[in-house]
C-alpha cells in the first residue's frame, strides 16, 4: 500500500502540549506541510507570539524567534528589512494581533511589509485562561466577561482583518476556518498563497484562521467545531477579502 498521509518532516517529533481539539495543532501541521512541499526550510523564519503558540518553536523544525506580546509584525519587519531574501511570517493570536499589537500589525500592513501573518482567531485569550479577547463575540462569556460581552461595556468585536484589507499595503487578505476537512484544505491553500505573495514581493499578506479553543469555550472538541461553523463563521464570514494578484490577472 502506498502512503497517502504521514507526518510532515518539518514538524518535530514532539507531542503537542496543546489541549485536545486545539486549532493550533492543525495549523502548525499545515505550515509544516507547506514548508516541506515548497522546500522552504532553508529560508523561512517564524516569529511566534506570546500565548499558547509561543511554544511553536518546540514543534517547527526551522528557525524561530520569540516575540513579546503583540510585537510580532515589528520584529518581522526588522528581519525582513535586514534580510529581504528570507521568508518571514508571524504567527499570532487575536490578543496579539488585534489588541496589544494593533499598531504594529496595522502599520506593517500599511507599509506593505513583505511579510506574512498567520492570525489564529479563537475569540478568547487561551494561555492566560480564557479571558475576553478583542474578537470575543457579543454575548460570549469569558472569564473576564462573565455576563457575556456587552457592547455598552466592552464594545464590539474588532475585525482587524477587514480593517487591514482596506490598506493599500496589504496584497492578500483572507479569512478561513478549520471547521471541516475541506475548510482546512482551503486554509492550507490560503497560507500557500500568502507565502507566494510574499515571495513575489508584492506586499503584506494575512490569513486569519477561525480556530476552536474547546477548553476555554468550555465545550467538547466535537462541539467546538460545530460552534466554529455555526456561530463564529456567522460573525466572521470566511473568504478572500483582498487579492491584488487576482485584479492584475483580471
Amino acid at each position: 500500500m502506498k502512503t497517502v498521509y504521514t507526518r510532515p518532516k518539518s514538524l518535530k517529533d514532539a507531542p503537542y502540549h496543546y489541549c485536545p481539539g486545539c486549532g493550533h495543532s492543525i495549523v502548525h501541521r499545515l505550515i509544516c506541510e507547506l514548508v516541506d512541499e515548497m522546500d522552504l526550510r532553508g529560508r523561512i523564519i517564524c516569529i511566534p507570539p506570546a500565548g499558547c503558540a509561543v511554544l511553536a518553536y518546540n514543534y517547527f523544525d526551522f528557525d524561530t524567534c520569540e516575540s513579546a506580546h503583540g510585537r510580532g509584525c515589528a520584529i518581522a519587519t526588522g528581519f525582513k528589512r535586514a534580510r529581504p531574501d528570507k521568508l518571514i511570517f508571524t504567527y499570532q493570536g487575536d490578543g496579539d494581533m488585534a489588541a496589544i499589537g494593533t499598531a504594529e500589525t496595522l502599520h506593517a500592513a500599511n507599509r506593505g511589509e513583505r511579510i506574512t501573518s498567520i492570525f489564529i482567531n479563537n475569540a478568547v485569550y487561551g494561555m492566560t485562561g480564557g479571558q475576553m479577547a478583542p474578537t470575543t463575540m457579543v454575548g460570549q462569556k469569558t472569564s473576564t466577561s462573565p455576563y457575556g460581552r456587552r457592547t455598552e461595556i466592552e464594545g464590539y468585536p474588532l475585525k482587524i482583518t477587514d480593517l487591514i484589507a482596506t490598506l493599500p499595503g496589504a496584497a492578500y487578505v483572507t479569512r478561513t476556518s478549520l471547521a471541516t476537512p475541506a475548510k482546512i484544505r482551503e486554509t492550507k491553500r490560503s497560507i500557500k498563497k500568502a507565502f507566494e505573495v510574499q515571495m513575489a514581493g508584492i506586499g503584506y499578506s494575512l490569513v486569519e484562521i477561525l480556530s476552536p479553543c474547546p477548553t476555554n469555550w468550555k465545550v467538547t472538541p466535537r462541539e467546538s467545531f460545530t460552534y466554529l461553523e455555526e456561530i463564529m463563521e456567522k460573525e466572521y464570514p470566511i473568504g478572500v477579502m483582498k487579492d491584488i494578484t487576482a485584479k492584475k490577472e483580471g
Binding site: 500500500m1 502506498k2 502512503t3 497517502v4 498521509y5 504521514t6 507526518r7 510532515p8 514538524l11 507531542p15 503537542y16 496543546y18 485536545p20 481539539g21 486545539c22 486549532g23 495543532s25 492543525i26 501541521r29 476537512p181 482546512i184 484544505r185
Partner: peptide, 14 residues
C-alpha cells in the same frame, strides 16, 4: 488525517 490535530494518523491506500 486532515482533521487530526495531533498528527497521529497515517493513511495508506492500495
Amino acid at each position: 488525517a486532515v482533521m487530526c490535530p495531533e498528527v497521529v494518523i497515517e493513511v495508506f491506500r492500495e
